[in-house]
Amino acid sequence: MTIRVMTTDFRHPIKRARNIGSAKSGAGAWMAMQFTSIVLVALSAWFVVLVVSLLHGDYASIRHSIGHPANATLMAVFVVLMAWHTELGLRNIYEDYIHRHWLLFWSVILTRFALLLITALALLSILRLALTR
């Protein structure tokens, strides 16, 4: 009499031996990408309206408008979410197309560093505009 054990692993035995399959860690990045996409759609519409309204303004009125607390806050959120969305997207591309682990690691690190630097400079500029109205 042979007793068969039910298994929930439906992968091919070769894939099971090589441990190829789902890493079970992509849902968080996917949800973050969806969240940033949805919020960036609304913020992009706000940004376009702001730019169009400032199209023929002089320098002082543009500084005053961008330095307004509501606009400065929305601009800061826009910059941070855009950097986060860019990092998520580039990391996804790197993981799909870069197969050398050391190159993948350094690509992600350098991209993250560059985006942090750009975001910090943008936030400092927004803060300067908001505080020197």
Rank of each mutant, 00 (worst) to 15 (best):
M1H: 08
M1V: 10
T2A: 08
I3A: 10
D9N: 12
K15Y: 14
R16E: 15
R18F: 15
G21Q: 04
S22W: 01
K24E: 08
A32G: 07
M33V: 06
F35L: 14
F35M: 12
T36E: 02
T36P: 00
S37D: 10
V39Y: 02
V41N: 10
S44I: 05
F47D: 01
V49C: 12
V49E: 04
V49I: 13
V51P: 06
S53H: 06
L54W: 03
L54V: 00
H56D: 13
Y59C: 00
A60T: 09
S61K: 08
I62F: 02
I62C: 05
R63Q: 12
H64G: 11
S65D: 10
G67N: 02
A70W: 09
A72R: 02
T73C: 05
T73Q: 01
M75R: 00
V79T: 13
L81W: 02
T86I: 05
T86R: 02
E87R: 10
L90R: 08
N92D: 10
I93D: 07
Y97M: 08
I98Q: 04
H99N: 03
H101Y: 04
H101R: 10
H101K: 13
W102M: 06
L103N: 06
L104S: 09
L104A: 03
W106L: 15
I109W: 01
T111R: 02
R112Q: 09
F113T: 08
A114D: 05
L115P: 06
L115V: 02
A120D: 00
L121T: 03
L123N: 05
L124P: 00
L124G: 12
S125K: 04
R128Y: 13
R128D: 09
L129G: 00
L131M: 07
L131R: 03
R133K: 08
R133D: 05
